[in-house]
């Protein structure tokens, strides 16, 4: 398994190279001039001479390939460049934002899984009970509501009515609560539905009868066997959600003013801050590929029939 993981990581290199080229080309082709944007944001009149000088200072007058190779070589040294907007190193800026996004992603995923799986299992074994029906209505609602609406409703309830939280999230545990909840509600709904469906299909498998016929405790059948076999598709849906979350939940981050990577990407794109956008896309792509790898490995851990090659 380790060998396989290493092989996959090595295979990552050409993928990342392709991504760098794609990102760089796209940013190059995007209309708008970062030098002009920078000068405008600083105020004052922008003369053609000043613009040319600024473009030269920013290295924008060099040919496409020279700029690209320069950028890639710098990445290998761990240097993602400096931000056009505040002259800060991109790497440290991104890491700070990324850590906040990852904290939010980890907290909401963990919270959703811990809540949703027991609910899913319980509704599967108590199919069509009152509890199952209530959960069904709640999960449909949670699934159907757009993210921004959930965020706004939570804000209205917790910040304006109850006044338990500040409207602008602080970057501490308390501040994390509402964005986490806002991201978790649709996830809990999805995970619980998925768990219920998979557990129900597993319960109709013949080995479950075989285990009952051996007098194995219900708990053992349910949590060590049925859930184990159902985990494959639960992992699929969880990893899909994690991939979305890692990209930064732009809407949620913006509503709660959570300074994560989604928020940063939005501002950088508007400001034509190429180094930040390029760096962010590169890091996020790497993370996406790593999540894929972890997902594939966990499939294998659950079910050895799945070939790794």
């Amino acid at each position: 398994m380790l060998k396989y993981a290493l092989k996959r990581i090595i295979k990552l290199i050409p993928v990342l190279l392709a991504i760098t080229l794609l990102v760089f080309t796209l940013m190059y082709l995007t209309p708008g001039d970062p030098a002009l944007a920078k000068l405008t944001s600083q105020g004052g009149t922008v003369t053609p001479e000043l613009l040319a000088e600024e473009r030269h200072a920013m290295g924008l007058d060099r040919p496409f390939f020279v700029r690209y190779v320069d950028w890639v070589l710098n990445i290998l040294k761990g240097d993602l460049g400096t931000s056009y907007s505040d002259d800060q190193p991109v790497a440290s800026k991104l890491m700070k934002a990324l850590s906040r996004t990852l904290a939010l992603a980890a907290a909401s995923t963990l919270f959703s899984v811990v809540i949703a799986i027991p609910i899913g299992v319980y509704t599967a074994i108590r199919k069509d009970s009152l509890f199952d029906n209530i959960v069904r209505i709640l999960t449909f609602t949670g699934n159907a509501m757009p993210n921004f609406l959930i965020a706004l409703l939570l804000m209205f309830l917790f910040c304006i009515k109850i006044k338990a939280f500040p409207v602008v999230a602080t970057t501490n545990l308390k501040g994390m609560f509402l964005p986490t909840l806002a991201l978790s509600i649709p996830m809990i709904s999805k995970f619980a539905r998925q768990t219920r469906a998979d557990v129900m299909s597993q319960l109709s498998e013949e080995y479950v009868i075989g285990m009952h016929a051996r007098g194995i405790k219900e708990r053992t059948i349910l949590f060590k066997n049925v859930l184990h076999n159902a985990l494959g598709s639960i992992i699929t849906i969880v990893s899909l959600q994690v991939r979305v979350l890692i990209g930064g939940s732009v809407v949620t981050e913006m509503i709660f003013r959570w300074p994560g990577i989604g928020n940063m990407m939005m501002t950088s794109i508007t400001a034509r801050d190429y180094p930040v956008v390029q760096g962010a896309v590169l890091i996020l792509s790497t993370l996406q590929v790593l999540v894929n790898l972890v997902t594939d490995l966990s499939y294998y851990i659950i079910d050895k029939r799945i070939s790794l090659e």
């Binding site: 080995y207 075989g210 016929a213 066997n225 184990h228 079910d303 029939r305």
Partner: peptide, 13 residues
Amino acid sequence: YVPQNTRGSFNNI
């Protein structure tokens, strides 16, 4: 109990 289905006694994975 031994069932007809040879996969019916144990969890396959």
